[in-house]
């Protein structure tokens, strides 16, 4: 299964090669041109010779991870996060370095702590990885400065129609994009599997610039905080209620007409859709929509619990619905274009 492989592959910002290689092999049969650009984005182009709007589909490949920044005299590894990681989730976990060497992040035994210590979170400065090395030299035989450590989590079905795995929040978009590329559309499609989203949507900025599309759809996962019993205010999205179409996040204010169009297409096709409550963090759309003269962009997300943690959770139904919605939108897309610009004929209805 595509999503399983993508979830279990390791690749953080600036080190996406395993993911890129796998995706390259996966999409090769379905695109006309395939290449990797100067920053590492994997680009697939389909129907380049056709006229009509050029549509960019974007999903980022990188996940959050830990970078080894120092090795102590007695062989323990110090690290810093690549992307947003809450240090509190790291305690008492195994991690994998260089796809081979396992290490553990431990903590001082509860017996040796004072009561007050247990109320304080452990910070990155206090944490370290133990690979069983006897000394700095011993550790250096397995690990170099700048290596990355990744979460170890099996991708598996979970509960009632859900999936659990690491990096789902990052790789769901890749899986959706790769699947969409198998379809035929009668306009040019440029697929960008981007790098360095987690450190500032840097890959997408470059890709949007050189691909210069007329329209862009960003595919990803978004926060679902739907676990509190009382009020649902902070939930953002809810698992099982369909894909989310972003209204606004910290890097993009989405075009209202486009959002209405998405809503209508979802209704016409009987696809569940939700709008996020509250403002999420930004994604590749932030770089794309302000590229050059500006690119009309929408962002479709699969709701995901526990993003940026060891075990994130999505609903299979939401994943399917997100695919269906993206596909339906692509099929409808030529109708709202006149030449290379969007024209909403029935504008007064909004």
């Amino acid at each position: 299964m595509l999503l399983k492989t993508l979830s279990e592959l390791n690749g953080t910002s600036g080190a996406e090669s395993l993911v890129r290689t796998f995706l390259q092999q996966t999409i090769e049969p379905f695109v006309d041109i395939i290449n990797t650009d100067k920053i590492g984005n994997l680009i697939g182009i389909k129907n380049d010779s056709l006229s009509g709007p050029k549509v960019m589909l974007a999903a980022h490949m990188d996940e959050v991870a830990l970078m080894i920044i120092d090795i102590t005299g007695d062989g323990f590894l110090k690290f810093r996060p690549v992307g947003g990681i809450d240090a509190r989730i790291l305690v008492s976990k195994p991690v994998q370095i260089n796809n081979s060497q396992v290490g553990v992040i431990g903590a001082k035994a509860i017996h040796l702590q004072k009561q007050a210590e247990r109320q304080k979170a452990l910070s990155f400065d206090q944490l370290y990885i133990d690979i069983g090395a006897k000394s700095k030299e011993d550790a250096l035989s397995k690990v170099k400065l700048g290596d990355y450590a990744y979460f170890i989590t099996k991708f598996e079905p979970f509960g009632d129609g859900l999936y659990k795995g690491k990096a789902l929040d990052h790789r769901v978009g890749c899986a959706l994009l790769a699947e969409l590329l198998k379809n035929d559309y009668d306009f040019p499609i440029v697929a960008a599997f981007t790098v360095q989203e987690e450190v500032g949507q840097r890959g997408a900025k470059v890709a949007a610039h050189h691909l210069a599309p007329n329209f862009a759809i960003v595919l990803e996962a978004t926060v679902a905080n739907d676990i509190s019993e009382g009020s649902d205010e902070g939930w953002i999205t809810e698992l099982g209620n369909g894909p989310a179409c972003s209204l606004m996040d910290s890097s993009t204010l989405y075009n209202a007409k486009l959002i209405h169009w998405v809503r209508d297409v979802a209704r016409q096709n009987d696809i569940p859709l939700q709008f996020p409550r509250g403002i999420g963090s930004g994604n590749d759309a932030g770089s794309i929509h302000i590229s050059k003269v500006g690119i009309p962009t929408i962002s479709l997300s699969v709701p995901c619990r526990y993003i940026h943690s060891f075990a994130s959770v999505i609903s299979e139904k939401d994943y399917r619905a997100c695919y269906d919605l993206a596909n339906a939108l692509l099929k409808e897309l030529p109708n709202i274009f006149e030449g290379s610009s969007i024209n909403f004929a029935k504008e007064d209805q909004f």
Binding site: V91, K164, Y306
Partner: peptide, 9 residues
Amino acid sequence: DQRTLLSQE
């Protein structure tokens, strides 16, 4: 130690 529990399977 409650600090060892978050994000555990």
